[in-house]
Design a protein around this nucleic acid. Sequence first.
DNA 1: ATTTCCATCGTTAAAACGTTGCGAAAGTAA
DNA 2: TTACTTTCGCAACGTTTTAACGATGGAAAT
Lengths: 174, 174
Amino acid sequence: MAKDMTRAAKTKSAGAKGDADASVILADIVDRARSAFEERNLRFTQLREQVFAEIAATRGSIGAYEILERLSDKGTRLAPISVYRSIDALIEAGVIHRLESKNSYFACRRHEHGRKGRPIFMSCEQCGGVVEVPAQPIFDQVAELATSVDFTPKVKFMEVSGTCADCRDKAKKD
Amino acid sequence: MAKDMTRAAKTKSAGAKGDADASVILADIVDRARSAFEERNLRFTQLREQVFAEIAATRGSIGAYEILERLSDKGTRLAPISVYRSIDALIEAGVIHRLESKNSYFACRRHEHGRKGRPIFMSCEQCGGVVEVPAQPIFDQVAELATSVDFTPKVKFMEVSGTCADCRDKAKKD
DNA sequence: ATTTCCATCGTTAAAACGTTGCGAAAGTAA
DNA sequence: TTACTTTCGCAACGTTTTAACGATGGAAAT
């Protein structure tokens, strides 16, 4: 039943927006997340699945309280802590990331660019969309710079805000 | 009188910690901030000065509510919004920075490394200290990478957390 | 000098984000 | 079964940030 819900949610969200990559349906993304959990011997519980599905169904990033609201609208009324615990587990499993600059969360899309090293997150200030771009050389340079000032870095990702191509083009039309 | 207070605060904080660069006294840092405001035709009000002095007197970064508390201890009781408004102005003037990953603020130290392009903030997870390291080439590379995926970046600084040399050495002793 | 204007600040309130503590339930292992 | 660990529900609380609105005070225009 949980799976049916996620499929339904996906159809609705992608259909409504006429998403270009509607081919990658939400259920598949959820399945990939499930695999990630299994690989690490972590439990992909119903709650975690629901939370993940909401995040993955979102274009751009989503805050914890919005997840809370959306699940509530669908009949699953939760306390904030439950969502945060699920978020922690999802981050732990590596299937979502936290966008520090917006206190929000988005589904990992590493699979879209293979696994070519650590990514930079480019987050559009207009539409909220987030793209992950592999940038290992830049991380290497940061590490080198840090070492040069005797600092031991612990960087997992970097965030860059700006404007995506779509929004830039839209702005030009005005 | 405001100046006297800041001088006193500085003496206390640097003296207590036996800070190495006690030579750069707080009052001078405040004066530099004042100049930054004047250059931009912004007002360095008493409130902004007090807030700035608290931030500048802090080793590492400080949260808005801790600023609030410290000022309250000194007899200036403020509403949170007042602190946030001052913080906004100080960021606007470029004399402090926000550490996104910790929801806290610290005084800009650009002058310590000349003005050689945009800095990366290296923030120590152990001691909370923050150092600014000029890293324009890395910003350039990020910009290039962004452009290559048709994204218009708007990066001012980057944050790297990790461990500073002092804390690493201390850890080794254990 | 008086009016006009705008930035700043005070005050109240609430929104947005995140955590603690405790105990029940459900999965795992012996 | 029993014991153990992980997850979850629940209630309250703590932290960070913003909104709305009015008062004040200094600079500029008349």
